[in-house]
Amino acid sequence: MAYARTDDGIKLYYEEAGDGTPIIWVHEFAGDWRSWESQMRFFSRRHRCITFSARGYLPSDVPHKQDMYSQERAARDIACVLDAAKIDKAHIVGLSMGGFATLHFGLMFPERALSLTVAGSGYGAEPAQASSFVAASLKAAEQFDTLGSEKFAPIYASGASRVQLQNKDPRGWDEFARQLGEHDAVGSALTMRGVQARRPSLYSLEEQLRRIQIPVFIVAGDEDDHCLQPAIYLKQTIPTSGLLIMPKTGHTLNLEEPDTFNRYVWDFLSMVESGKWGMRDPRATSEILKVD
């Protein structure tokens, strides 16, 4: 068992496998270090892979103060895990909450990111959805407080963008819901209040996003309604980005369609490492049809 210690004294549990160019996997709100098992097994054949539990997620520490949870802190914690593993630069891959942390890591520590994969991210990012997202996050936090993780997990895991996993892979969904039910309820509630409900809108970061030079891969499921438009926005805003929309797929992309997810992320990383993933050709952004 390995732990990274953050600059504010929190221990973060991490595991690693394989050798090669490092990849760090950053889990979603409903996941933890175990969520990336299919990716750890596949990518560790050629890469050094690291998966960790965010603060508030066992076996990492669970601080009981809300001010110890924030979007900025989540991004800094990625850097702390890299420091503990003695890694200068890595490919950063995140899903949902982890995708937000990945993107913010790229903005805060661009010199340490070989690439960014931002999957299933954008819920609550659209200005028109911001207030309802905050309300839903605070309601979920209350449910973790009152019901506890074990009772609330099946409800949360049956959301509109989670039923796709349940329909495709009932056994996998059962494992997903069971693991969610094992989460520390205090940590989950404080993560909802401190990170999810308070994170800045992606649309407020447009100027910073337009300056990104790191290769970025954006992935969304076509039935993950709250993330589709933000994914398109990110594609149109980040000049180094590519976008994949996976058909008949919801939020838990890497669990629903692990083979497809792995293949496309593998192709992306291969293109990055061969120097073939560059900036968008300026000619591809013109809206004027040239006929001469």
Rank of each mutant, 00 (worst) to 15 (best):
D174H: 13
V186C: 12
V163S: 07
Q208S: 12
D169F: 00
A157Q: 03
S149C: 15
M192Q: 12
A157V: 04
G194H: 04
S188W: 01
G172C: 06
G159Q: 09
R178D: 09
G181C: 03
S201V: 06
Y156C: 13
D184G: 06
L209A: 07
S158N: 15
R178E: 14
G148I: 01
Q196P: 02
Y156E: 13
A160W: 09
E206I: 04
S201Y: 01
R178V: 00
R193Y: 10
G148Q: 05
S201E: 01
D174S: 11
S201T: 01
S161Y: 08
Q166I: 08
S201M: 04
R178A: 00
R171L: 13
H183L: 09
E206R: 08
W173D: 03
Y156N: 13
Y156I: 15
Y156K: 11
A177F: 00
S161F: 06
V163C: 10
A160F: 07
Q164T: 15
L209R: 06
A177K: 01
A157F: 08
L165Y: 11
L165A: 04
L209I: 10
S149V: 15
G181S: 14
I155A: 05
A160N: 10
A189Y: 03
R198M: 08
A160I: 12
S201W: 01
I155H: 09
G194C: 14
E175V: 10
A197W: 10
L165G: 01
S188N: 12
L190T: 15
H183M: 06
V195F: 02
G187N: 08
F152Q: 02
R178Y: 00
N167A: 13
G148E: 05
M192P: 02
Q208V: 06
R178K: 07
D174A: 13
A197I: 12
V186L: 15
S201H: 01
